[in-house]
Computed example of a mutant assay.
Amino acid sequence: MATSNTPDFKGTASSTPQGDQSQQQSSFQDKASSALSGLNGQLKNIGDSASAQLGKLSTTQKVVGGLALAAGLSWLSRAMNKRNA
């Protein structure tokens, strides 16, 4: 394995194998990929569950819920504008 002499933050030389760095990076990428694929599955399950629940609502419930959501977003937007002004 090839090693490089690189100064650390104190200015002293340290010898670290370059293979270890690439192995650590690969391990990090594997963990990140695994976490993202698990998160993707969880989000899909949540979306499927939410759409199933939404399908059970009547048209009136959907309209009232949409209006309440719009009113809440409007109020939040106005509150944020007042806070930032």
Rank of each mutant, 00 (worst) to 15 (best):
M1V: 08
A2L: 03
T3V: 11
T3E: 09
T3W: 06
T3Y: 09
S4N: 06
S4I: 05
N5H: 01
N5I: 04
T6P: 01
T6R: 12
P7L: 05
F9K: 12
K10N: 15
G11A: 02
G11F: 09
T12I: 01
A13Q: 07
A13C: 04
S15Q: 07
S15G: 00
T16L: 08
T16P: 01
T16I: 08
P17F: 04
G19Q: 08
G19A: 13
D20H: 01
Q21S: 03
Q21A: 04
S22H: 09
S22A: 09
S22Q: 14
Q23R: 14
Q23A: 15
Q24V: 10
Q24H: 03
S26G: 03
S26Y: 05
S27C: 10
F28K: 08
F28S: 03
Q29P: 00
D30R: 11
D30S: 09
D30H: 07
D30C: 04
K31I: 06
K31R: 11
A32Y: 10
A32T: 03
A32M: 12
S34T: 08
S34V: 06
A35C: 02
A35G: 03
A35W: 05
G38P: 02
G38I: 02
G38C: 01
L39E: 15
L39S: 10
L39I: 10
N40K: 07
N40T: 06
G41K: 06
Q42N: 01
N45W: 00
I46D: 08
G47D: 06
S49N: 13
A50I: 05
S51Y: 07
A52K: 13
Q53V: 11
Q53R: 15
L54G: 00
G55Y: 13
K56T: 12
L57V: 08
L57T: 06
L57C: 07
S58R: 08
S58T: 15
T59R: 11
T60G: 09
T60D: 15
Q61K: 12
Q61P: 00
K62H: 15
V63P: 07
V63A: 14
V64A: 15
V64R: 04
V64W: 00
V64K: 10
G65Y: 00
G65A: 00
G66E: 04
G66S: 02
L67D: 07
L69G: 03
A71T: 11
G72D: 00
G72V: 00
L73K: 11
L73M: 14
S74P: 00
W75S: 12
W75I: 10
W75D: 14
L76G: 13
L76K: 15
R78Y: 04
N81S: 13
K82Q: 13
R83Y: 11
N84R: 15
A85F: 05
A85T: 02
